[in-house]
């Protein structure tokens, strides 16, 4: 694929992450402020109760899959660009491309499997 196309998707992924990670960060870190505004769940956001409550909501399942894919692409493409600035050999560049592409895909499948499995098997957890 052309480099400019890959770069364009990096930028688009950045915009997508901006929205979904923004949401994730507000939920995970500004919980007291959200609670104050009457939007929070109250209590510890990383407690099992709170985590599994979210895991069983379709909204979180979908947004996590989107965020997972966008952040993996954006982060790994960015890292690849940084490495490529170091004047690597063509062979090394090819190895990096494959390693990142396959590694990213594997992580995406794993993360998606986790969220989807929990969503459809609430009794198993």
């Amino acid at each position: 694929m052309r480099e400019s196309t890959l770069w364009f998707w990096h930028i688009i992924a950045g915009a997508v992450i901006f929205v979904f990670l923004g949401l994730h960060m507000f939920i995970m870190h500004l919980e007291s402020i959200l609670g104050f505004l009457g939007l929070g769940y109250g209590g510890d956001v990383t407690s099992a109760q709170s985590v599994f409550m979210r895991s069983q909501q379709g909204f979180y399942m979908v947004t996590y899959i989107v965020l997972l894919g966008a952040a993996l692409y954006h982060g790994l493409y960015g890292f690849r660009n940084i490495l490529f600035e170091l004047s690597l050999s063509r062979t090394l560049e090819k190895i990096i491309n494959w390693f990142f592409a396959l590694g990213g895909l594997a992580l995406f499948i794993y993360g998606t499997y986790v969220t989807v499995f929990i969503f459809f098997n609430p009794t198993a957890v």
Partner: peptide, 13 residues
């Protein structure tokens, strides 16, 4: 984030 995927993945257990 790369570690985060595995840590939060532990909720499958």
């Amino acid at each position: 984030f790369l570690l985060h995927i595995f840590v939060t993945g532990s909720r499958i257990g």
